[in-house]
């Protein structure tokens, strides 16, 4: 970057506030939708992995192998099927990435249900489905949300890579800033990504507090 250009030009931020907010909104959309889809896939998959133990190892291995594929490569792989400018080209790979965190957390969450609790539920006369919905899944919530927090932050960081195929939310600030040798854009891009990650995480922590007032983590027993 050239010596004449200052590291940060505040006036540019001020004059581009609307543009930046739009990018941030789009970034958030592109990173959160995969987490939602990931959760929709992981919950039934996790339930299956707990019910039939043999399902879990192949599912976990597959999710981890997917995660090991570099994101850019995975985006490129999807272009022929979903098209270059489709959001799906970004959303599907990012959804697949969330599975390596979400599936094990759903499984671990369901395993939090202690033997006496599930025996008591059975002995009280819960049917299978009702036991799953009213006892097992609610008890799994704190661990599942812990997974959602990791998946969200990782998704927020990965979306920028999508800019290399022309669709990456805040990522455009990095490619553009680099081409124009304009560091302000790069710094603002980094700052906004971090802010988004923090904000999303704070929202999730609040959601967890509200959903699970019974969890003892972070609070002293009365």
């Amino acid at each position: 970057m050239s010596g004449g250009e200052p590291l940060i030009r505040w006036d540019w931020i001020g004059s581009h506030a609307g543009y930046l907010a739009g990018l941030a909104g789009r970034h958030l959309y592109l990173s959160l939708i995969p987490v939602v889809f990931g959760l929709i896939v992981s919950v039934p998959l996790g339930i299956a992995c707990t019910r039939w133990r043999w399902v879990y190892p192949p599912v976990l291995t597959s999710a981890n192998v997917l995660y090991s594929i570099p994101s850019l490569a995975l985006f490129l792989l999807f272009i022929p099927y979903t098209g270059l400018f489709s959001d799906l080209t970004l959303i599907i790979p990012l959804t697949l990435y969330t599975l390596s965190v979400l599936v094990p957390n759903v499984v671990d969450g369901l395993r939090q249900v202690s033997a006496p609790v599930s025996q008591a539920a059975t002995a009280m006369g819960f049917g299978r489905l009702r036991q799953l919905l009213q006892v097992e899944l609610p008890i799994a919530v704190p661990v599942v949300i812990a997974g959602v927090r990791i998946a969200t932050v990782s998704s927020i960081s990965l979306v920028s890579v999508g800019q290399l195929i022309g669709n990456g939310g805040l990522g455009v600030l990095f490619t553009d800033g680099q081409q124009r040798i304009f560091p302000t854009e790069v710094i603002v891009g980094i700052a906004l990504t971090v802010v988004l990650a923090f904000a999303a995480d704070a929202v999730l922590v609040t959601v967890q507090r509200l959903l699970t007032p019974w969890a003892r983590t972070g609070r002293a027993a009365a």
Binding site: P116, A120, T122, A123, M124, G125
Partner: peptide, 23 residues
Amino acid sequence: KPAELRRGVGYVIQQAGLFPHRT
């Protein structure tokens, strides 16, 4: 039916087995 039978039979277990997420 098992579930109906069980609702008519009280059951107390070691360590109580209370549902942690319910008051």
